[in-house]
């Protein structure tokens, strides 16, 4: 019956996922059994006792203590089994093992930022070594968000006033989606990051040299990658359609009016300030909702993004 499991659950890719899935399937079978029972009884009774004449005799059975006890106690027992199983696996998944690697997660509308133990910071992509316990310490800079990795079966709300945690240990190298699971406004459905689970060696490589996807690329091409990784795509289009922010198509060299009436030419410096201190110049007709990327982007990222915007004629 693995097809049923595959129909409902994505491939289990963390150490705790298997146990969650087993419980899921146990409950699934309970569901199926009880639905067969209910449907079966309905069909049986309707077939047998369908009214054939107005005079059809009916039984006067007010109740039956034994039966009623049995269908009170049996569900009680079954639900207690499910309760303890669920509680147990929840407890195990709550406390991270000692020595787990710690990652600082910052959520804000609508980007995920990850801080690594060596002090480096990444946006939109979380690099972790396979088979190592990872503990995420999370907080939000604005409203509620929720960190969710379906493949790992973990989820926790991210709050503005205190830290929440989840931990996981990935068992399979690969890319896994992190969809934001707590409604946070316009960009909620696009507040998407990825966990990149790699071998220990690749992970060390990443820490030392940076993201291999980004290395050795011409700036404009790298900019195109960062455009989605950093979540710029949530608000900016590249085809001229207006999103929550202005489209980037053909803006380089144009004159833009700000809310305070000043005119600016979109050049390297303007773009740089737009990314690092977006509140300084807010384009007329838009709200100042763009998050600051100060401290999250490196110099080469800025160069790449500027080159990319330039290339969008």
């Amino acid at each position: 019956m693995t097809w049923l499991r595959h129909l409902f659950l994505p491939a289990a890719s963390s150490v705790k996922a298997e146990d969650v899935d087993d419980l899921f399937m146990f409950i699934m079978w309970l569901n199926i059994l009880f639905m067969i029972l209910i449907t079966g009884l309905i069909v049986l009774f309707v077939a047998r006792y369908r009214r054939k004449s107005a005079a059809q005799k009916t039984a006067h059975i007010e109740h039956n203590t034994a039966l009623e006890l049995s269908w009170s106690i049996l569900p009680l027992i079954l639900s207690m089994v499910v309760f303890f199983w669920g509680f147990n696996s929840y407890m195990q998944a709550t406390v991270a093992p000692d020595g787990a690697m710690e990652i600082q997660v910052t959520a804000k509308k609508w980007i995920w930022t990850f801080g690594y133990p060596d002090g480096s910071v990444g946006v939109g992509k979380l690099w972790v070594p396979v088979n190592k316990p990872i503990r995420m310490i999370m907080h939000s800079e604005d409203v509620l968000h929720a960190f969710y990795v379906p493949a790992f079966r973990v989820k926790a709300d991210v709050l503005p006033n205190r830290y929440t945690e989840v931990w996981f240990q990935a068992t399979e190298v690969g890319d896994y989606v992190i969809p934001c699971a707590e409604y946070c406004g316009k960009g909620h459905s696009q507040m998407r990051a990825y966990v990149k689970v790699v071998s220990q060696k690749d992970y060390e490589n990443f820490l030392e040299k940076g993201d291999p996807d980004e290395i050795g690329k011409p700036p404009a091409e790298l900019g195109a990658i960062l455009y989605t990784n950093f979540g710029c795509s949530t608000c900016h289009s590249i085809d001229g359609t207006r999103g929550q922010g202005p489209s980037w198509k053909g803006i380089y060299g144009a004159q833009h009016k700000m809310t305070d009436g000043k005119l600016f030419t979109v050049d390297e410096n303007y773009i740089r300030t737009s990314i690092l201190q977006p509140q300084q110049m807010v384009v007329e007709g838009f709200q100042g909702i763009m998050p600051s990327y100060q401290g999250q982007v490196r110099e080469r990222h800025l160069t790449a993004l500027i080159a990319y915007i330039k290339s969008l004629k």
Binding site: V20, L23, V46, G86
Partner: peptide, 30 residues
């Protein structure tokens, strides 16, 4: 009424998934 028994049956039974702590963590807000 018969359709109620069937649909409410599914509604109630799928509540078991959500009451079970570790499974709810995965299913919450989906």
């Amino acid at each position: 009424a018969i359709s109620f028994l069937f649909l409410f049956g599914i509604g109630g039974l799928t509540g078991i998934f959500l009451g079970a702590l570790s499974v709810d963590i995965h299913l919450h807000d989906t």
